[in-house]
């Protein structure tokens, strides 16, 4: 079933329309990859799914995004609530520089006041760091600043941080673009492990990554959704000429 549905979704920066009338159903407990050449609106698309698009100056959205059938852009809906349910990992790792590794993991939960005692806190930190496949590397240094880690570790820390608030959906905006191949492989493994518990949307400019790690793929070109389908079908038997051109490397 569809966890998220985009209904006639258009997004603007000022007068520039970056997404044009997108209709798309994102299936639950699966990994959906969003691919396309740079500037096609991939990032804007995922940022619309947890109302991060509107944080930018002059940005606005038309149409609907349904989360479990409810429009997250309906009047009166609080983006804070939406972002709690739809977590996000960014292109560059963004640990809070003034917080330790442990504090970074717990940062989102602390807002909710749902961490009651230190035992529970330690348990959550360990569980999330294990989920993010970072525990073994940092378990002796939880008090160190988050920024002291390597790039790949920082990104996994950010994933742990996003998982700690127990979202239903995890958005990943090119999470591997600033990482080395080894870290990239770890994060891809992680994505495959997490999909049993989360609905994952991953933006990538790396087609091998989309082919390896995703179940469904959406191909975007100039803000238009060209094709959406099972990853296997998209990469072996695309229906549209543009998709074929892109995945065979004829442009982009």
């Amino acid at each position: 079933m569809a966890k998220l549905s985009l209904v006639h979704l258009s997004a603007y920066f000022g007068r520039v329309k970056t997404l044009k009338d997108i209709n798309l159903d994102i299936p639950e407990y699966n990994v959906t990859a969003v691919i396309g050449p740079s500037g096609c609106g991939k990032t804007t698309l995922v940022r619309c799914l947890n109302r991060m698009h509107e944080v930018v100056r002059d940005a606005r959205v038309e149409g609907e995004v349904l989360l479990d059938g409810e429009n997250i852009y309906a009047p009166g809906v609080d983006p804070v609530q939406i972002r709690r349910r739809v977590g996000m990992v960014f292109q560059k790792p963004t640990p809070f520089p003034t917080m330790s590794i442990e504090e970074n993991v717990i940062a989102g939960l602390k807002l909710n006041g749902s961490v009651r005692n230190s035992a529970q806190r330690a348990e959550i930190v360990e569980r999330c760091l294990r989920l993010a496949a970072l525990w073994d590397e940092v378990k002796d240094n939880l008090g160190k600043p988050g920024t002291s880690l390597s790039g790949g570790q920082q990104q996994r820390l950010c994933i742990a941080r996003a998982l700690a608030v127990e979202p239903e959906v995890l958005l990943m905006d090119e999470p591997c673009s600033s990482l080395d191949p080894a870290s990239t492989a770890r994060i891809e493994e992680l994505v495959l492990e997490l999909k049993s518990q989360y609905t994952i949307v991953i933006v990538t400019h790396n087609m091998q990554q989309a082919a390896r790690a995703s179940d469904y793929t959406a191909f975007l070109l100039n803000g238009v959704l060209i094709e959406f389908g099972e990853t296997k079908q998209i990469f072996t038997n695309p229906k549209r000429q543009e998709t074929e051109d892109y995945i065979t490397g004829r442009f982009g």
Partner: peptide
């Protein structure tokens, strides 16, 4: 299942306040 609009926890309203 929690609703997008609902979830009237006290803590949440305190944070908003």
């Amino acid at each position: 299942m929690s609703s997008a609009v609902g979830q009237l926890s006290l803590r949440y309203w305190w944070r908003k306040f």
